[in-house]
Amino acid sequence: MHLFVQQVINGVLLGGMFALMSIGLSLVFGIMKTANFAYGALYMLGGYVAYWSSVLLHAPYPVAVLAAFVVMFGAGILIEVAGFEPLRGNEDATLIFGLGLALVLRGGAILAWGSQSRFIATGGPGSVEIGSFIFPTARLWAGIASFAIVGAIYVLVSRTRWGRVMRAVADNARRASLLGINARVVYWLVFGLGTGLSAVACVFLIPVFSLSPTVDESALYIGFAVVILGGLGNIVGCAVAGMILGIVTTLAYGYTVSTIAPVFPLLVLVLTLVFRPQGLFGTRGRLA
């Protein structure tokens, strides 16, 4: 029972990280209906921006995070303008563009920085004991930070004027344009924001998952798993789906052999795709 409770709490923390990992993908997928297959690679790139600004420029941790966000925000806008915007409406071309960009970035990252795992040094003790439960500090902080960021994005999208504009564009970009909203600019900003957030996610999760050019693949499939399970562009869905997958993952690691455990969250994704492709909180839309 103790193990179970410990694993569930770990799962919730991990779920927060999964939600953070996929929030950028979810925003872009939900608002722009663009499935960005380069998401994982951009996530990885954001991590490296923070890493190098911390290692080479000795930037303090918060500055490194900010630098990663700003640089990747700009990169995101650039990619949207140069790549995804002209291809909008053509799913196959969008998909292939994303795959191509991912290959270039990943191959380039290995060439430039090698494939070894890296960490950003964070001080403090290795683990905290609360009652009879033990939490590695890195995971605890990453989990808490994740929930904070996801919460902030939720407030941004659902409670602010800016969020209302984004939702209007998500609902019907052309009609939003008729209301005087510049949908193109909203798309740029959303893509920038999504990419910037992926960078922040990567930086926050470096202490847990480390950083190497191959984190892109896991970020991509966890991202898609969360987004599909939660429902397109639904931030509450993103958090809930993240937690479900997190708990499934930690329980799987707790109760099965570690080699087979990674299959379970994937099975959740498969079952979702088969039985409820619109996700838990999504409405049956254009995908079915």
Binding site: G83, L87, A93, I96, F97, L99, G100, L101, A102, L103, V104, L105, R106, G107, G108, I110, L111
Partner: peptide, 12 residues
Amino acid sequence: MVLYGVFLLAYV
């Protein structure tokens, strides 16, 4: 890998 990626982008 980079070459394949560039090829895909050029293709698109």
